[in-house]
C-alpha cells in the first residue's frame, strides 16, 4: 500500500487531469492516465491504483480503456496500448471465447482501444482452464454499442477464425482477472454514486419551495440519508475486498455496487425531480453509466443468486472477514 501522502497527491493529480479532460465531453482520458503513471502504479500497487483511478473515472464521468489494463495485468500479462482485451458480454463474467470444433469463436465487449490496437487478447474458456489467445485486430468484427450510454464508448466484438491465425495460448487464472475487474468497476460505481448524491444534496439546499429549501423537508432528508448509507456500505465492501482480496469479496463488492447504484439513483432522481429529468443536467449521465456498469462482469442480481446457491449447497455462510 502506498502511504496517505502519496495517495493524496496521486488522487489530486488524477482528479485535475480528469476535470480538464471532462471539458471535451466523452473524450477519453487514456493519454492523461499514461502521463500520470497509471500503468506503473497498477503493476506495483494494483489495489490502490484501481481504487483511485476508477473512483475518479466514476465521479468525473470520464471514459478510458483502463479496464483493459486491469484485466491484462491481473491475468499476469503486460499492458500495452497496442493490445485490446476482449471483455465478457453484457451480464456475463465467463471468458468470452470458446473453441468450437477447430474454430475459435468469441463474443464480447471491448473499450475504444480495440479501434487502434494491433491485437486483441481473447480469454478462451476450455475444460482445462482459461487460455489467453492473441488475435490480430483485423480479424475482429467491431461495432459501436449505443445502448443507454453511448458515451461509455464500448464496442461489441465478434471473432470467428481458425486458431492457426492466433498466437500460442497461455493458461491463466481467469478468476483473478474477474476479481480485479469487479473491484475496479465497483469503485467506478462508487465514484458515480457519490457524484449523484452531491448533485442532489446541493440541489436540496438550493431549491426553495413553500418558502424554504427542500432540504428542510424530512421526506427529502430521509432519501438523501438512505443514499449516503448505501454509499458507505459500498465503500466498506470495497475496503473489505482490498483487505481480504479474493474472488468472493470482489464478487460481493460488485453486488453491493449494483444495489447501491439502484438506491442512490432512485433517491437522488426523486430529489432532483424535474430539473434532473433533462439531459441538460448532469444527473442522467451518472445514472446511465451506473446502469451500464452493473452489466459488466456480472450483474448484482446474478451474483446474489449464485452466492445464495453456494450458501444453500454448502449449508454455511462464509464470514470472509474477521476483526
Amino acid at each position: 500500500m502506498i502511504d496517505a501522502a502519496e495517495r493524496g497527491l496521486f488522487e489530486e493529480s488524477v482528479r485535475t487531469a480528469f476535470a480538464r479532460a471532462a471539458g471535451e465531453r466523452g473524450a477519453p482520458v487514456d493519454g492523461a492516465l499514461a502521463e500520470l503513471g497509471w500503468l506503473e502504479l497498477l503493476a506495483a500497487e494494483p489495489a490502490d491504483a484501481v481504487a483511485i483511478v476508477f473512483r475518479a473515472l466514476g465521479s468525473a464521468h470520464a471514459t478510458a480503456s483502463a479496464l483493459d489494463d486491469v484485466v491484462a495485468s491481473a491475468l499476469g500479462r503486460g499492458t500495452s496500448a497496442e493490445v485490446a482485451v476482449l471483455l465478457p458480454e453484457s451480464g456475463a463474467s465467463d471468458p468470452p471465447g470458446r473453441t468450437v470444433g477447430d474454430r475459435l469463436r468469441a463474443t464480447g465487449l471491448a473499450t475504444a482501444r480495440v479501434d487502434t490496437a494491433r491485437e486483441v487478447l481473447v480469454p478462451v474458456g476450455t475444460e482445462g482452464g482459461t487460455n489467453l489467445v492473441l488475435v490480430p485486430a483485423a480479424d475482429a468484427r467491431v461495432a459501436p454499442v449505443r445502448g443507454i450510454d453511448p458515451e461509455a464508448g464500448l464496442r461489441a466484438v465478434t471473432i470467428d477464425l481458425d486458431p492457426g491465425a492466433a498466437r500460442a495460448p497461455d493458461v491463466v487464472d481467469w478468476e483473478e482477472g474477474v476479481a480485479l475487474a469487479r473491484r475496479a468497476i465497483s469503485h467506478q460505481v462508487a465514484g458515480a454514486c457519490r457524484a449523484m448524491l452531491e448533485l442532489a444534496r446541493r440541489h436540496a439546499l438550493e431549491r426553495v419551495q413553500f418558502g424554504r429549501p427542500i432540504a428542510q423537508f424530512q421526506a427529502v432528508r430521509t432519501r438523501l440519508a438512505d443514499a449516503l448509507v448505501a454509499c458507505e456500505a459500498l465503500d466498506a465492501a470495497l475496503a473489505a475486498a482490498a483487505d481480504e482480496s479474493g474472488p468472493a469479496t470482489a464478487a460481493l463488492a460488485k453486488a453491493v455496487a449494483g444495489r447501491t447504484a439502484r438506491t442512490v439513483g432512485a433517491e437522488c432522481q426523486q430529489v432532483l425531480a424535474g430539473i434532473g429529468f433533462t439531459t441538460e443536467h448532469a444527473f442522467h449521465r451518472y445514472l446511465k453509466r451506473t446502469m451500464l456498469l452493473d452489466g459488466l462482469f456480472g450483474a448484482a442480481d446474478d451474483i446474489v443468486l449464485s452466492w445464495g446457491r453456494r450458501l444453500l449447497d454448502g449449508g454455511q455462510v462464509p464470514r470472509l472477514i474477521e476483526l
Binding site: E232, A233, L234, A236, A237, A239, A240, L252, A255, V256, R259, D301, I303, V304, L305, S306, W307, G308, R309, L311, L312, V317, R319, L320, I321, E322, L323
Partner: peptide
C-alpha cells in the same frame, strides 16, 4: 431461497465490513 438468502448475506457482509472498519 438462493435469491433471498443471497440478498441477506450481502447485507450482512456490507454491515460486517463497516463494523470492522
Amino acid at each position: 431461497s438462493a435469491e433471498v438468502v443471497g440478498d441477506v448475506a450481502l447485507q450482512l457482509h456490507a454491515l460486517r465490513a463497516r463494523s470492522r472498519a
